[in-house]
Design a protein around this nucleic acid. Sequence first.
RNA 1: GGGGCGGUAGCUCAGCUGGUUAGAGCAGUGGACUCAUAAUCCAUCGGUCACGGGUUCAAGUCCCGUCCGCCCUACCA
Length: 519
Amino acid sequence: MAEASSFYITTPIFYVNDVPHIGHAYTEVAADVLARWHRQAGDDTWMLTGTDEHGQKILRTATANGVTPQEWADKLVADAWIPLLETVGIANDDFIRTTDARHEANVQKFLQKLYDDGHIYTGEYEGYYCVGCEEYKQESDLVPGAGEYEGQLVCAIHSKPVELLHEKNYFFRTSAFAERLLALYEERPDFVQPESARNEVLGWVRSGLADLSISRSTFDWGVKVPWDETHVVYVWFDALLNYITAVGYGQSDEEFARRWPAQHIVGKDILRFHAVIWPAMLMAAGLEVPKGVFGHGWLLVGGEKMSKSKLTGIAPEQITSTFGSDAFRYYFLRAIAFGQDGSFSWEDLSARYQAELANGFGNLASRVVAMITRYCDGAVPTAGALQPADIEIASVERRATDDSWQAIDRLAIHEAIGAAWALVDALNGYLTAEEPWVLAKDPANRERLETVLATAYRGLGTLAVLLSPVTPVAAAKLWAALGAPGTVQQARIDRAFEAELGERVAPLEALFPRVEVAE
RNA sequence: GGGGCGGUAGCUCAGCUGGUUAGAGCAGUGGACUCAUAAUCCAUCGGUCACGGGUUCAAGUCCCGUCCGCCCUACCA
């Protein structure tokens, strides 16, 4: 199915000033698995990720470090963000930075068009400004003052009174699109997923939309507003546009038509921007809205949303250095229903690593390859007359292939892995029931032995293909050990059960070696 | 304050529009087996479904209330 159809998937772009943690990596991995799966099913796939580099905070930290904001961003991208992708094995097709010329120039083009078409007006922003923080505060950030400031509202951080300031700003008429947005959610129930996210978005839009201030004039690290260079574009407005500037908007109509619209994968915290403001922006510009917006859940540590301020932030390398990138990818996508919040704990991670990856999948590969080596001198045997158990394995392979692909189509990554895993369990059970090590003792059982091993070998091949998007490193090792041709990524995943395999097995090192947990 | 979500076996979670003895995985226990990373396979223990009312022939599943937890309330995946 889906021959050569276009599949364009994005992650949010990272705010470079953040410190990468497993939450960022989680989003990346989810998008990457979907991209790999589609790519391997023959779709014209494109995965985009990148960095968000404008804004006052970055300007400030750059200045504090005595470098220009561009130099600061360059350093963070090179030292933190590109390495993050490598750490968890992301195979993105493009990496956009909001400081790229292709981005900045076309953000201006987009903005100018909205301005020319009357979607932007000049207004006045009024807000509480904290001199200490050098930024506007929401009322929720203010607390009642004490002592000499008794009776006034003060900044929660500095405990000093804030000033009510007015600033000239340009505003985008988000409010004008409320009806069209509601119609969109109505017509396309899966535009915002999962269901809980959709409900939340519906609630927001029904309760009314305020116009969005889209420019700032108190600092200058950003894309200049084309008709008023004393203003720079508000970072979110700037950042969202990466999804189209990266695929040719304003530059190459052909490329743009080929890729757009995209499936966005975002954390549920930024759902509002992606499911409300972004489609409104696109509507204003006369462009197609995204294919869909999927808001995934939080990673919870100790029952609470992971956060660096509470010191629960975990760097991806803490996990990958011990368990490897495959385990990272597998664990978070398998253990957490995609879209829901999920609890992370080292205990759970190592338990699943041991039980599922090492004992389940890894050991299965190991025992099958070892038996073919031992009983057949490494030559892959040919199946003889099939018995019901062998036929059952073949049908499990077929079901795993179909079910997992069908789940991926619904963005149910955890279900897709579960569907593939049914094959791991079936094969382990099959071997125990057929007892090839017993068959091997009597030459009279030779044909049966070879049939069983051929069937198990066939199953392993299917497994390698099905799991390659999730555990690409292990799948490649297994593929090589099976002596299969080319790379496992070249095998069509939507027809995994009939992948072309090999004739001789090669030694296989442990796919997921046992880990001594040092807490 | 307002809004959302959740509270089901030791742990992580399934339980759709209410309907036979509430399920899975892991952990625990017992057994089988030895090809394999002391792995695998089978069996088994284990729950007053947060609490209190209500609706109903029937509620984990609907309604009301209470308690607890988390999150959102315009710029942290």
